[in-house]
Design a protein around this nucleic acid. Structure first.
Lengths: 337, 337
DNA sequence: CTGTTAGCGCGTTCAG
DNA sequence: CTGAACGCGCTAACAG
């Protein structure tokens, strides 16, 4: 079954040490014998055992990716980007998903899951508890966050406050004065700061323009379409006049609000402008104005930095701010009157 | 740094063999010494090295998951389900994504990626080439497909033909006679049969009802919203009358078509009924009538079977048909006149 | 019930 | 430039 390095060595009539050196492109091997070894290895279909080389070197050529969900827009795309550069460099991707809160039970992530299994870890938009963070740092493997700031480690993400401010500014610039808000973070996941950053930036922008924050025009959701629709219901059902615009903490929630508006015959953008953040795959087809970010590039960038660090370039892992861009489509316009 | 089994053995004043037995819950260890070992291990924060035990046992407690994309509805949810049961059983999940066709270059999946790294493999809705399949079987690790039939190995998925027939039947039962079709599979991925199964079932159902298949009412997409919208453009732009209903190969395409219809002021369901397959997260909020399937359960079921097989229950891996259900919402109704 | 002894397959000194 | 020998950390077979 398993053809090992000894088989190759025997067949090539050299020692296992030479095979090892030849196959890994190390110097101190004559071109002749290297060619010979390569040929024999290929012929025998030899592939080194990761377990064995892992044991010998202490490195697994595997990086862990910790995510709260894999089935959400940002994470799916980020993982895709990470996978690309990992694979390009011969690294494996070990996935750890917390799967939201299955059955209300939080699945915890512990050092033991990581111990000696991975060379580095990418943490996606996830607030780790102090305890978990401490354990992780204790293992001394390189750590990097993607999608949002995580206390105690560097990360790659967009400036969420600036993004939210831009979106809000777009609405205000259009002339809107009654702006509602569907914010994220209803679940209040520990240390996950993105929803709060966007919320605060919105409120600051509104205050800066001298506009009122109306509680009855504010609702929270957990970043999903369904929650966006539910939040919209609460705002639309509030007594009195409706806002002329809605700032949503994520495109999914914005889209949910649009569905609800459509259900009620509220015309967009004539009666209501809606803006989100993300540039979800559905946003362009739906004509949603939004702040675009590219999670796959966040993933690529983060993975590249982590690999550089693993390759020995200490200090490669640092904070990186990714670009975002306002994409004006058909869901926003100047208010009616 | 790494506290090894020897450290535990020394500290507990027993042999490494005893430590190994105690920690793995094997018999032939007195409760007293087992407790002692457990205590010491906990105190020292000992965690076995996967590489070492992998080398010794030949098993990695890791299963590979091969997907065409991770950032698509079906796959993201299926992976989530797989991850759950794997984690519950102490297994790791090694992810291999083909990432669609990055830069037009197909990333190939080879035996070497798997060699000695995983104990089993779950292939998600992916047509492997004959060559790849042969290589994989050659490694003799258990193989199981999820989401669609793959020649040469068992799988868990829904009866796509029946699902498509049910959706089509719903339209016909409502009285529609002019039914358009947005089908999947434009990319024609090798061996990926799901789009074709749904397409054929639709055409058979139409023929069975004595209804005409009009080429100008047919368009193809690759299962995404954007493509659904594009396909709808082609159908809506066709000269002559429009169909009164549209059967779509996936919810994403159905949703794309709905966006395009809305853009043109075509009212749903008054002027056009739309039905899809999947029950995508956006479908309920959008009011889309569809055939619901639950990919996370497909993943859970497949992972469970694979684990049973790995646990020694030969024959555990077999074909399983998962349920689907017609969910009537607001996108379908009887035709106007 | 427990300890001793071999490897598992590969990387890595250190001689030559 | 090459080979022999040891060790990585753990499990498995065999004694005791």
């Amino acid at each position: 079954m398993g053809v090992s390095i000894d088989d190759v060595a025997a067949q090539a009539q050299v020692s296992t040490a030479t095979v090892s050196r030849a196959l890994r492109g190390l110097p101190r091997v004559s071109e002749a014998t290297r060619a010979k070894v390569l040929a024999v290895a290929a012929e025998l279909g030899y592939v080194p055992s990761p377990s064995a080389s892992g044991l010998a070197t202490g490195r697994t050529r595997t990086v862990g990716v910790l995510v709260p969900f894999v089935d959400r827009w940002y994470f799916g795309h980020a993982i895709e980007g990470i996978d690309q550069v990992l694979r390009e460099n011969g690294y494996n991707l070990l996935l750890f998903s917390l799967g939201g809160y299955v059955h209300g039970q939080k699945r915890s992530f512990t050092e033991s899951m990581v111990r000696k299994q991975i060379d580095g870890l990418l943490v996606l938009s996830l607030g780790l508890s102090e305890e978990e963070l401490r354990q992780l740092h204790h293992t001394d493997i390189p750590l990097l966050s993607v999608g949002g700031p995580v206390a105690g480690c560097h990360g790659v993400y967009i400036d969420d406050a600036a993004a939210a401010a831009t979106a809000t500014g777009h609405l205000i610039g259009l002339g809107h004065r009654g702006v509602g808000h569907i914010r994220g973070g209803i679940q209040d996941e520990k240390n996950f700061k993105v929803p709060a950053l966007r919320t605060v930036a919105f409120e600051t922008a509104m205050a800066g323009a001298g506009l009122e924050l109306r509680p009855d025009w504010t609702a929270a959701g957990d970043f999903t379409v369904a929650d966006g629709a539910r939040a919209a219901v609460r705002i639309f059902d509030a007594p009195g006049e409706l806002p002329t615009a809605l700032f949503c903490g994520s495109d999914e929630m914005a889209l949910g609000a649009m569905f609800e508006a459509q259900r009620r015959g509220i015309r967009i953008p004539e009666e209501l402008s809606v803006v989100g953040i993300d540039d979800h795959d559905f946003s362009a087809p739906a004509g949603l104005t939004t702040i675009a970010q590219e999670p796959w590039n966040h993933g690529r960038s983060a993975a590249a930095m982590l690999l550089a660090e693993l390759a020995g370039a200490a200090g490669s892992v640092r904070d990186v701010l990714m670009p975002f861009e306002l994409k004006i489509r058909h869901s926003t316009a100047a208010p009616r009157s």
